[in-house]
Structure formats: structure tokens, C-alpha cells
Simulated scan of single mutants.
Amino acid sequence: MSTVQLLPVISSAVIAGAVVGAGGPLLDAAGGGFSYALAAILSAGWCYAALAFCVGMVDTTKLRAAGGGAVSLTVAVLAYYITKATQGDFAAADLTDTTGQTTYFSWGEFASMTSLWGVVALVLGPLLGLAGWMARRGRVCLPFQLLIPVIALAETTMRLHVEASSPSTPVVTAWEVVRTAAVVLIGVLLAYAAWTKWRSQPRAQVRG
């Protein structure tokens, strides 16, 4: 495949990754219940997994799917931590200043967090991209189609369990909506797979 043919694929993966990665922190800083809810969704692990999965799903070859998944997820991680850095999340107090008013940018913390999740992105990105490709073009699609809704269901259930004692907030409502949507999607996918299998079975001919 030529470089010219790869450019649209890479560009799409980069744009999608940048939107998801930077979108979470920016919406969180914007304030407001709706913004907080969207920020929580965009910053969730299942959303990052869905990013690489969807990029792989629209690609036409396994190699492009794997590459697109890796690129989109890595860019998302970089965009997330760079945006958080510009918002002052990695500012540390200067202990030599007795007033406690002097801060500096903690390059060590920034580098360690970015490197850790960057490695995770490089490992999981290609796998999720391939899973997306298999969900659309593989011989057995159903297990791969169920991957993202199952991840979303598991993560939201865990988050809601942790926040069970807290009052209802827009973020908690967002988790409940995502979990409900995941359950519905799982049911639809299973029902459609069963219906497709039933239709593909040979019918007994009615003898006159």
C-alpha cells in the first residue's frame, strides 16, 4: 500500500484519537452537569477501547485495522495527558518555598503516566483494531461484536457499585445510561445472531 493511500487512514485515526483524548479533560473543565457526564464517558476505559475498535472496524485490511487501532489509541493517550498538563494537573509544590505558593511542572509524573498508558495503547490498540475488523469481516463475528458492550457493562457496573452510596449525579446517571445501552445492545446482537442462524437453516419442503 502506498503512502498516499495510507494518509487518509492515519489522518482519521489521529483526528479520532485527538477528539476522544482531549475531549474528556476539556469537557470536564467546562463545568455543568451535562459536560461532566460527557467528560466521564469520553474518559472511560470502554470508550477508549471503542475508539480503537471502531477505527479497526472501518478499515479494509487486518494490517490497516491493527495500525489504525494503535495510532488512534496512542494519540488519545497523548492528547489526554497533554491537555491535562495544560490544565495544571501536573503542577507540584516547590518544597523549598516555605510559603507553599511556588509550583513547578512535574515532568517525572507526566512522563511516567504518559509512558505507562502509551505502552498499554501500543499493546491493546492493534488487538482492539483487529477485533473491530473481525466484528465486521470475520467468519465468526458475534464474539467480537459483543466485546465493547461487555467491557462497557463490566466497567459501568463496577463504577456504579463503588458509587452506590453516593447521591445521584449527572455522572452516575451517565453510567446508568451506558450500562442500560450495553445490556440492550448485547440482547439485540444475540437475538440477531439467533435469528440469522435460524434463517440459514434448511427448511423442510412441504409435500403436496
Results as ranks from 00 to 15, higher is better:
Ala65Glu: 08
Cys54Ala: 15
Asp59Lys: 14
Tyr81Pro: 03
Val77Ala: 04
Val58Ser: 14
Ala70Tyr: 05
Gly68Asp: 08
Ala76Trp: 07
Leu73Cys: 00
Leu78Glu: 03
Ala52Phe: 10
Ala70Asp: 04
Arg64Ser: 06
Leu63Pro: 12
Val58Arg: 15
Val55Gln: 13
Leu78His: 05
Ala49Ser: 03
Ala49Leu: 01
Ala65Arg: 07
Ala66Ile: 06
Thr74Tyr: 08
Ala52Trp: 08
Cys54Trp: 15
Arg64Leu: 06
Asp59Thr: 10
Ala76Gln: 07
Tyr80Lys: 15
Val75His: 00
Ala50Thr: 07
Ala66Cys: 11
Ala65Asn: 09
Ala70Ile: 03
Thr61Gln: 07
Ser72Asp: 13
Thr61Val: 05
Met57Cys: 10
Leu73Thr: 00
Val55Gly: 12
Val75Ala: 01
Ala70Phe: 08
Lys62Val: 12
Thr61Asn: 05
Leu78Ala: 13
Thr74Ala: 14
Tyr80Arg: 14
Gly68Leu: 04
Ala49Asn: 01
Leu51Gln: 05
Tyr81Glu: 01
Ala49Cys: 01
Leu51Gly: 06
Ala49Glu: 00
Ala79Leu: 04
Tyr80Pro: 06
Met57His: 13
Val58Lys: 13
Leu73Arg: 00
Val71Asp: 02
Arg64Val: 00
Ala79Asp: 03
Ala49Gln: 00
Ser72Arg: 11
Val55Lys: 09
Thr60Gly: 15
Ala66Trp: 08
Met57Ala: 15
Phe53Glu: 03
Ala76Asn: 07
Val58Leu: 11
Leu78Pro: 02
Lys62His: 12
Tyr80Val: 07
Gly56Tyr: 03
Thr61Gly: 05
Tyr81Arg: 04
Leu51Thr: 04
Val77Met: 07
Lys62Trp: 11
Val75Ile: 05
Thr74Arg: 04
Met57Ser: 12
Leu78Ile: 12
Cys54His: 14
Ala49Met: 02
Lys62Ala: 13
Val58Asn: 10
Val75Gly: 00
Gly56Ile: 02
Ala70Asn: 05
Ala79Cys: 03
Ala52Gln: 10
Thr74Gln: 04
Leu63Met: 14
Thr74Met: 10
Gly68Trp: 07
Gly69Gln: 00
Arg64His: 06
Tyr81Ile: 02
Leu73Met: 01
Val58Thr: 13
Ala70Gln: 07
Leu78Arg: 08
Tyr80Leu: 12
Leu73Gly: 00
Leu51Ser: 06
Val75Pro: 00
Ala65Leu: 09
Thr74Glu: 03
Ser72Gly: 12
Gly68Phe: 03
Val71Arg: 01
Val58Ala: 11
Ala79Pro: 02
Leu63Glu: 15
Thr60Ile: 13
Leu63Gln: 15
